[in-house]
Simulated assay, not measured.
Amino acid sequence: MRVVSQEVGKNMVHGEFESMKAIHTLLPKFAPEPIAWGTYETIPDTHFFLYEYRNMVDEMPDPHKFSARLAALHQNSQSPTGKFGFHMTTYSGNLPQMNEWEQSWETFFAKNLRLALKLELEAKGHDPEFDVLVPILFDKVIPRLLRPLESEGRIVKPSLVHGDLWYANSGIDVDTEDSLIFDACCFYAHNEYEFGQWRPVCNRFGAEYLEAYHSYVQISPPEEDYDGRLDLYKLMLGDMRDLVKRYGS
């Protein structure tokens, strides 16, 4: 059981419950079943999210077994509106995601990123480097990398993504040896969005996991933009500088 406080905590556990319900409904062996969420009857500002208990071992899952399940999640999921987004706000940590439905992946991603950068500046204060990088990022880099996905007859399927899939949000069921994921903040996205989290070295989903995944799901065309897209989906300050240099002219 997860226990949190304040209004933001209430919204977080609600979003996590709905996220895990979406995954578990589609692939019940890939996620513990969410049981309930709510507010303590006797402690009004304390909220909970109750999961099914699964006995897990803290080891990395087999790349192919794990990637097969993740590929099934992405490929078999269907957005209820046919658009990108989710039916409610979900939270990456304590940060809300802009999940309003959008027909275009480029538009959805840009709106979500604008919110993330706004929250970053509110938390850490003004950064003059952002004044230079951010306009180029939105005016040139995002269109350059994401618009081709939806041009010349190409389409992007809205796939259900975990949203915060790093190794600490995964495990192995001791009894069944099934790969498991948890702590999700789902929305319907370009499936490759999932892998921005895998780029930093500290995330132990390394190249062998990406290679295994792409044995089930091909890289989205145009393939030559793949590395740039994943850097965009990861997007740290160093990535912003690098992407502006690579794609900003």
Score class of each variant (00 low, 15 high):
F30Q: 06
A68Q: 12
R54A: 04
K29S: 14
E129A: 13
H47D: 04
A110D: 04
R69I: 07
G125E: 12
L133W: 13
Q97N: 14
W105H: 02
E100L: 12
L73G: 04
E122D: 07
K29A: 13
F66R: 01
S151N: 15
L137G: 01
F48E: 00
T25L: 08
E41T: 04
K21N: 03
T90D: 01
K29M: 10
E106N: 03
G125Q: 11
G153K: 11
G38A: 09
L26R: 06
V141F: 00
K124T: 15
R147N: 13
L113A: 04
F17R: 00
N55D: 15
P148A: 07
K21D: 01
A72D: 13
H74M: 05
P28T: 04
S151Y: 14
T25P: 01
F86Y: 13
R147Q: 15
G85R: 01
K21C: 07
E18P: 03
P128S: 14
D139V: 05
D139P: 04
F84H: 02
L145R: 00
R54T: 09
F86R: 08
I23L: 03
K111C: 02
L50V: 14
P34M: 05
S19P: 10
L133T: 12
N94L: 09
M98I: 05
Q103C: 02
P80K: 05
L137S: 03
Y91W: 04
Q97E: 11
A71R: 05
E33F: 01
E100R: 11
P61S: 08
F17A: 04
K140F: 06
A72I: 07
P61K: 05
L50K: 09
P63Y: 13
A22V: 08
L113Q: 09
F66Q: 02
E52H: 05
T107S: 10
P96W: 02
P128W: 14
F86H: 08
M56T: 09
G85F: 02
L26A: 06
A36N: 07
L95V: 15
P158L: 02
Y40E: 01
A116R: 12
P63K: 08
S19T: 12
S92W: 10
F86L: 13
G15Y: 01
E16N: 05
I35S: 04
D127L: 13
L137M: 15
E102S: 07
N55M: 12
I35P: 02
D127R: 14
V132F: 11
A116V: 13
Q75A: 07
W37H: 10
L137N: 01
E59N: 06
E122F: 06
E122C: 03
P80A: 11
L117I: 13
R114I: 01
E150P: 03
S67V: 11
D58S: 10
G85C: 06
P80D: 03
R154H: 15
T39L: 05
I155P: 00
P158R: 01
E152Q: 15
H64V: 14
G82I: 09
K118H: 03
S92D: 09
L70R: 00
K124Q: 14
Q75H: 03
R69S: 14
T90M: 01
H24N: 15
F109K: 00
I155G: 08
K140Y: 05
E16H: 02
P128D: 15
T46C: 10
L70V: 08
D45F: 11
D139Y: 03
